[in-house]
Simulated assay, not measured.
Amino acid sequence: MTQRPDIICIGAVLWDIIGRATSHMNKGSDVPGRITRNPGGVALNIAMALKAYGMYPALLSVIGSDEEGTELQGACARLGMNMDHVYRSNDLPTDRYMAVEGGNGLIAAIADAHSLEAAGDKILRPLRGGDLSGWSGLIALDGNLTLSLLEDIAHDPAFAAADLRIAPASPGKAERLTPFLSHPRATLYVNLEEAGLLLHRSYKTSKDAALALLDSGLHRCLVTDGPNPATAASRNNVLTLVPREVLVTRVTGAGDTFMAAHIAAEAEGLAEEAALARALDATAIYISGESY
């Protein structure tokens, strides 16, 4: 009998192509560094981090039937990912993400997630009458889906009983999460910039942004601000903690690491402060390249 997952991760599964340099970079910089290609995408990054914490996630996404897709499917399987419910498309190419990072952080990035957008609700078939129908547990959802599909999910009875944990995927897609501001079971994971874009205002601190999100009708949120204090806020409690200082060696995937660590901590039964502290520490370890 196939093991039933304890969380479903919905969104981007693609190839991450990342160029990293240790030197400070500006527009037009041409410097030596390293270029890597690894399985990535918000949903997959979250799933991999969750598995490292002992959880068993299943992925809902799309991968092309092209050579890159077959290679990606195999790479994900070797990482121990549950790919049983991923939609394989015969007419859509496998998605890709490309980023350049310098010693001063992310310089630029392009997310080519057009196949995920084009696949639409085909990726949700397992939840809508398929093997995962009637799901009432955790769902990690990323904003790489189209606004129309996210709106459908926000009002879909198939998701009504789920514990929805949602990330925008990038600042440019933050506004796509607007339908969840009034959802009774949605928790948003955003950074300070994304919170401002979502509410069409700017905020000085994560606490200011978190309180504004609650005022807008949101059920719960976690707002980060790089090395500055992060805030977890709900109707019952507002908690702010300061991340520890580290030397930043990478940034792509940091938000996914934070979200996964927090979800796993709460799944273990950790209290709010302990869960936020673990998520911040896991992120510090990730961006610094340290190891436990």
Rank of each mutant, 00 (worst) to 15 (best):
A169D: 11
E175W: 02
A167V: 06
V238C: 12
L214G: 12
L188V: 05
R220V: 06
Y203D: 07
A212P: 11
V223G: 06
T240C: 11
I166A: 07
K173P: 01
H200W: 02
L239R: 13
A232I: 07
A233R: 05
A169G: 09
G172T: 00
S170W: 03
L211T: 12
G217P: 05
D225K: 01
P243N: 04
K204N: 10
E175P: 00
L213N: 07
P243V: 03
E194A: 03
A169L: 05
L177C: 06
L181E: 06
V242C: 14
A167T: 15
A174T: 02
H200K: 15
L197Q: 08
G172D: 14
A186T: 13
A212D: 14
P184E: 01
V242F: 07
D163V: 07
S182C: 12
V246E: 04
V242L: 14
P179K: 02
L199K: 08
H200Q: 15
A174G: 05
H183K: 07
P229R: 02
A210S: 14
Y189V: 01
H219L: 05
L164A: 02
N236H: 15
L192Q: 06
N228S: 15
F180G: 02
S216K: 14
T205P: 12
P229Y: 01
V238F: 05
A210H: 03
Y203F: 15
G217Y: 03
R201V: 11
L218H: 05
R201H: 14
V248H: 01
A162G: 04
P179S: 06
N237Y: 13
T240G: 02
T178N: 06
C221G: 04
V190H: 04
L247I: 14
G226F: 02
L211A: 13
D215R: 15
R220G: 03
R165C: 08
V248R: 11
N236W: 01
L181N: 08
L181W: 09
T178V: 10
D208P: 04
A195T: 11
I166M: 03
R185C: 04
H219C: 13
C221F: 05
L164S: 06
D215M: 09
P184G: 11
L198P: 05
A167K: 00
T205D: 08
N237T: 09
